[in-house]
């Protein structure tokens, strides 16, 4: 990064972002988090630690949650990337995951909330794909990589549990 030669090095990457085909030219070391926030101006993906520990930047790549801060943008090539901005395009702007989080009081300061919502969306898609039922313990395990300092997690897990039960039933 300190050498000009490296900074000038550029590669092209194509993927679908929230359902739209996109292509852009990036530095090889560019992390997806910064590409999303700084290039696509999708500021809903939050930079909490930028070292893969807090989950605030959770997005879906091919329907599985990943930490955008540790995900090389180059690796998004040919994949489906969903961010929080891709959820909730209905009338009231909220996906059912988000509705459950709101209704259960699972949002306080909210900095972890987009990442939580994406992680739970990932669970929902996983459950649909595999026809497995994720119980409360499985939900807690699935959310282990998403830190929250405000809520104590109870309402977040409640929201996920209700959503997944509804989807299953």
């Amino acid at each position: 990064m300190t050498e000009h030669k490296k900074e000038e090095e550029r590669i092209e990457v194509r993927f679908t972002l929230n359902g739209q085909d996109v292509d852009c030219t990036i530095a090889p070391m560019q992390m997806l988090l910064h590409l999303l926030r700084d290039h696509f101006l999708l500021k809903g993906t939050k930079p909490g630690c930028e070292e893969g520990e807090c989950g605030a930047c959770t997005i879906l790549v091919n329907d599985m949650p990943v930490n955008a801060c540790l995900y090389l943008a180059a690796n998004a090539e040919g994949k489906r990337v969903w961010t929080i901005e891709g959820l909730g395009n209905g009338q009231d702007g909220l996906d059912e995951v988000q509705k459950q989080l709101v209704a259960h009081g699972a949002v306080q300061c909210g900095f972890c909330s987009p990442g939580m919502a994406m992680a739970i969306k990932g669970m929902q898609l996983f459950q649909q794909r595999t026809q497995q039922v994720l119980d409360r313990a499985a939900i807690q395990k699935w959310l282990e990589g998403n830190l929250c300092r405000c809520t104590g997690y109870v309402h977040i897990v409640d929201a996920a549990e209700r959503l997944l039960q509804q989807n299953h039933g």
Binding site: L42, K46, T83, G88, L94, Q98, C109, G110, P114
Partner: peptide, 8 residues
Amino acid sequence: DAGLRVSG
């Protein structure tokens, strides 16, 4: 304000 926060 929860809806705005959870929507990023």
